[in-house]
Amino acid sequence: MTVTAPTPAPATEVPKSSGTRLVDRVFKMRELAILAVFLVMIAITQMGNSQFLSEQGIKDLLLNATILVLVATGQSLVVITRNVDLSVGSTLGISAFAAGTYLQGGGNPVVAVFLAALLGIGCGLVNGLLVSLGQVPALVVTLGTLYIIRGIDSIWVGSRQITAADLPGSFVDFGSGGISAVPYLALIALAVLLVTAYYLKHFGSGRELYALGSNPEAARLAGIPVRKRILTAYVVCGGLAGLAGAMYLARFGNVDSGTGNGYELTVVSAVVVGGVVFTGGSGSVYGAALGALLLTSINSVLPALGVSSVWVLAINGILLILAIAVDRIVALRVASALKKRNARHG
C-alpha cells in the first residue's frame, strides 16, 4: 500500500501538553540519572586519587568501556524486542580468534575486522532463525548457542593462544592509539552508537522493534513482519559482537579459547542498568551505553581508591537491583500521574 499521508497537517504545531513533558522528562531523567551517578563517582575518585584523571587514565576508562558499549548496543536491540542474546560472549571470543588467526597468517587488518564482523553476523543469523522460527524462548535458544559456539571455539583453538607479538604492529597500535585522550576504538563505538540510535528513532523498522517488544500480539495484527524484525535485531547484535571481537584483539592482543567467557552477563547488566526494560518495548541505546560506561569504570575506580577488586562484582549486583527498583518506582509514578491527567479530560 502506498502511504498516503493522511489528512493534510494543520499549519500550526500542536502544543505539547504537560503530560508529555512529564514523560519526556522521566525518560531523559533515566539516562541523566546514570550520567549523574557516573560523574559523582568519577569526581569522588579523583578527589581520593589525583592521578585518576590523567590523560592515560581517561583513555583507559574509555578503552575499557568501548567493547562493552558496542556489545551492549547490539544487545539493546534484541532486548527491546522482548528477547535476549546470551551467546554474545562466545561470539566475541570466536570472532576475535578468527581475526587473530587470519592476521597471524599475514592478513590485512581491515579484512580481518570485516571477517570478525561477518562471523558475528553468522552467529546472529543462527540465533535469529532459531528464535523467530522455532517457538522456543530466546533465553533457552541462546543459552544453547552460547555453549555450542564456545564448544566449537574450544575444539578449534585447543590450547593455542594469540599474542600481540603475532599481530601486525599497525593493528596493535591502532588498538591502543587515539586522538589525545580519545581512543580510536571509542570513536568507532560512538559512531555505531549514534547510527543505531538514529535508526531506532527515525526509521519505521526501528520503531517496529519497540512495537513488537511492547505487545507482540498487537504487532502481528498491525501487520509488522515480526520474524524478520527479530532476525534483524539478532543479526545486528551478532555483527556488533563480532566487531567487538576484533576490537578486543586490537586492544589486548591476547586471545585464547576462554576469551569472552561469561561476558554475556556483564552485557545484560549494562543494558538493564542503562534502563532498557527486560520485558521489551522501552529504553534507549544511549542508556545502555551509559550503563556500560558505569559498570566498566567501577572496575577502575575501586583499585584507584585502594578498595579490593573483589567488591566489583557485589557492586555490579547492587547497581543492577537498584536500577530495576528505580525503574519500577518511576513506572508506577508515571502511571499514576497519567491517570490523574486522564481523569481531567476524558
Binding site: P6, G204, R207, A211, S214, N215, A222, G223
Partner: peptide
Amino acid sequence: PTLFPDLSIAENIFMGRQPR
C-alpha cells in the same frame, strides 16, 4: 484493544505506515 503500551498514541495509530 491491540495497543503498544510503551509507544505514544500517535505511534500506535500510524505504526507500520508512518508518513515519511
